[in-house]
Design a protein around this nucleic acid. Structure first.
Lengths: 116, 116
DNA sequence: GTTAGTAGGTACCTAGAGGAAAGTGACTAT
DNA sequence: ATAGTCACTTTCCTCTAGGTACCTACTAAC
């Protein structure tokens, strides 16, 4: 039983990448509504602040999950789109939604049982 | 384009449930090595503190992802095991590992391209 | 002249998650 | 008498993600 670092969990890197805060709502919105501008994203997600949205979009752009297109007009126009790499996560999201549909009620039941 | 709360993302609840901090290493260890005691988990994960391990295990027990069996001996013995519900996440974890295998290198390339 | 719109950037602040370290209780082994 | 085991618990502390609020440059419209 050798002491093993956290990274022994082989999915730790991808969890950090895909499931850090705000990334799934952003990815989902981009996937659902297609290419869109900063303010559209902001309004659709609703509770995110522009500062955090910028931070997350920058990181996701760096990771290759989204692409950013800047149009040097006045007022400036920037469009965000989900990349091929980002799109390749779709089956995982789908499977998560399926799991949710089938098992989230069981989680709720377990919680109520535990709280008694 | 009505303002939509964060929960418009249909997988947000399951992300909170399954991918909050330490849950995947714990679930993975339980899945890999089977039923085991508190200290075994602690040593295998390596970098987690007992306080946090207790917190996370309690929460996962409440959510029905793990089961806890207490043996009132001296010294006390407690065994943790992954539940049926927890085991039902296995395909998702598998798919994440597959995605990781095929696409994590692309992420690394995207990062290097971005940093130039 | 001033308001609105756009895509952010910057400075400051706070709450809360998580880490470090020590303690606990009941017993055993040396 | 002392040390060790186990499964935590408690206290204290730090760090940082995220929030608030304000600022930028530029133009069109009123």
């Amino acid at each position: 039983m050798e002491p093993v670092p956290e990274l022994a969990c082989p999915i730790a890197p991808v969890v950090d990448l895909v499931f850090s805060r705000w990334t799934t709502p952003i990815l989902w919105t981009l996937h659902e509504y297609g290419r869109q501008r900063f303010v559209e994203l902001e309004r659709r997600i609703g509770t995110i602040t522009p500062k955090v949205l910028t931070q997350r979009l920058r990181q996701m752009e760096r990771d290759g999950l989204v692409t950013r297109t800047y149009h040097p007009e006045v007022p400036p126009r920037v469009e965000y789109e989900i990349s091929e790499l980002g799109r390749s996560l779709a089956p995982i999201f789908h499977q998560l939604a399926e799991w949710s549909k089938h098992n989230l009620a069981d989680v709720e039941k377990a919680r109520q049982r535990y709280d008694r």
